[in-house]
């Protein structure tokens, strides 16, 4: 094993690429940490897990995402076969995700953990969208509240968020 390099600083590299193209710098969201964490009093073996993923996942039969600031979402039933899952995205290498969707959408992984009894169950639906939405206000003011509403309606105990 050779010496490790530090993690890739995607914010710095995006800034450098944009600058080289003559674009103004992208204004990344900068938040302070939350004041406090939400908690659940249930043991993990009883948790119902809500899954939200941003890798542009859709199921066969659904309309795919488009690539210009699409902030719609897809509802994917928890028993959807992995073979029916697809990905579309303008910005990340989907070579692995298209062969094994679990790498960006661990629905089957969660089903396995539920079958083992490590968790209680998976929420009735998982929710997916296509990240790389330029407008942070669309995410903050429209998409985030809509998805949070769904998790509340599904009565999940814990949310697992999977960006790419």
């Amino acid at each position: 094993m050779t010496e490790r390099q530090p993690p890739v600083d995607y914010i710095a590299r995006t800034r450098a690429v944009y600058s080289s193209l003559g674009y103004p710098p992208y204004r990344w969201v900068a938040n302070e940490p939350l004041a406090a964490l939400a908690r659940t009093s249930k043991p993990r073996s009883e948790w119902r897990i809500g899954l939200i993923a941003s890798g542009g996942i859709y199921a066969v039969g659904q309309i795919a995402f488009h690539h210009r600031d699409d902030y719609s979402y897809r509802e994917i039933a928890r028993d959807t076969p992995v073979e029916d899952l697809r990905t579309t995205h303008f910005a990340y290498d989907q070579a692995d995700a298209r062969q094994d969707p679990n790498v960006v959408f661990p629905l089957e992984t969660l089903r396995g953990l539920a079958a083992e009894g490590v968790i209680g169950e998976v929420g009735a639906n998982a929710y997916t969208f296509m990240g790389g939405i330029y407008s942070a206000s669309k995410v903050r003011d429209v998409l985030a509240p809509a998805l949070a509403d769904r998790l509340v309606a599904d009565a999940v105990d814990v949310a697992l968020m999977v960006p790419v």
Binding site: P7, V8, D9, Y10, I11, A12, W28, V29, N31, L34, L37, A38, R39, T40, G50, I52, S54, G131, A136, V139, R140, L143, A144, P145, L147, A148, L151, V152, V156, D157, V158, A159, L160, M161, V162, P163, V164
Partner: peptide, 25 residues
């Protein structure tokens, strides 16, 4: 995704994110 996790927490649901982009997370 961090924005969505924060909104979910605001509803009282604990959230955790996977990440391969540490600076963004």
């Amino acid at each position: 995704m961090g924005l969505i996790g924060r909104e979910v927490e605001a509803r009282g649901i604990p959230s955790v994110s996977l990440s391969s982009a540490l600076s963004i997370t």
